[in-house]
Design a binder for these strands. Structure first.
Lengths: 219, 219
DNA sequence: GTCTATAAACCGATAGAC
DNA sequence: GTCTATCGGTTTATAGAC
């Protein structure tokens, strides 16, 4: 997507990602980034001009590359499905896929955390991120919801999408206190399955309340 | 609650609150706090020993003073209520009170933002905050849910409480992008009413799905 | 393009006068 | 308890050799 990311630039972006996600823009030093990228202290300023520019580049990198399987596919499938059973299955699959895409069995979850942090913290490129990432994705999500539940108004679909986003956002952002609260070391697969099951159940109850012809499939 | 907060100490705590909420612990300098509090640069270290201690003190101040009407009152009332209509009314009132307590018509909303930031960012006193603030409050909330919906297991009540927290958390944390997304300047009362109405509807659908004998009261 | 060296500013914390 | 002055450390950013 962005061929101008050569070796060092790419290394800097990939080193900065997890650091920004964990410590924020102000809490991450150029030195820490350079050290992690095995690059020189001056590399960031040479390649990006400033730390803020690098932050923007990292967000662009995350947004254009590593997002989950497109929501639009589910929406298209939902629009062509009539059977109550198939529609229910489709929604359940979407929620599960979507939930677990933020908690891969292995690998870093800093993409999600960085996105979440960008939501919370005013960043130099927030307007850009909203327009280029959140708006299109949210639009697809609303389309999926309205395909499943044709009776919903636009505003209701928007709020339902918020409810969906809120659930996953919460488990990502509040991970540290949740773990302390539950006296756990890390989210284990069993907990994630329970959480995903609860979210699915809540979303089904919500959509059914709004008139969707769906029933929670037996596990 | 804490009588040892005299003039200057109180001024420092009240000056630091909004700054910590907006810029975080690392992003807020002692000098900025002192300037806002019209105090000397050395005042923070003199009165609190360190910036981190001040942060903890601010959180304690927020937690012990400005939180909403205690959840325990609702729980106690719910445990003594049998009528389906009264129980429904009680739950609806609780959700509305609780939602709107985070969006007062006037006055600062930095309390909520600071709490949210504490959720996101590892702070020196997170364990303390979890034990002293989140755990008791969550316990009361779970109690309320189980009083309304006696069939729920402990784990189910915990997840339902998470769902409740997630909804409000989302509207606070993601406020900036939501406003950009909706092309609004600020949450207006009409939007907040719609949002609260949606949250109420979702929670009712969820609790009914878990077996609670409640019905959404007509507005 | 990569490195060293360093400038210029800022930070938290403290010593000491008042 | 409040203030000034300052220390020691870190930050971003840059100048200049290679």
């Amino acid at each position: 997507m962005n061929p101008s990311l050569d070796g060092t630039k790419l290394a800097l972006v990939e080193a900065a990602g997890p650091l920004f996600a964990e410590h924020g823009l102000e809490g991450t030093s150029i030195r820490a980034i350079a050290e992690r990228a095995k690059a020189n202290v001056a590399a960031v300023n040479y390649h990006f001009g400033s730390k803020e520019n690098l932050y923007t580049e990292v967000l662009r990198h995350v947004a254009t590359r590593v997002m989950r399987r497109p929501v639009g596919e589910y929406r298209a499938e939902a629009e062509g499905t009539r059977s109550r059973r198939d529609l229910s299955q489709l929604v359940a699959e979407f929620i599960s896929d979507w939930f677990h895409s933020y908690f891969p069995p292995e690998g870093p979850v800093w993409h999600a955390r960085l996105m979440m942090r960008t939501l919370l913290e005013p960043s130099p490129s927030l307007q850009q991120i909203v327009d280029q990432v959140f708006r299109p994705e949210h639009s697809e999500l609303e389309g999926l919801l309205r395909a499943v539940c044709p009776g919903m108004t636009e505003e209701q679909a928007r709020f339902c999408a918020f409810t969906l986003s809120a659930q996953i956002t919460f488990f990502i952002m509040a991970k540290a206190p949740i773990l302390l609260f539950l006296r756990m070391r890390d989210y284990d697969p069993a907990f994630l399955d329970s959480a995903c099951g609860h979210v699915t159940r809540v979303v089904f109850a919500m959509l059914r309340d709004y008139g969707a012809p769906i029933t929670l499939p037996a596990t």
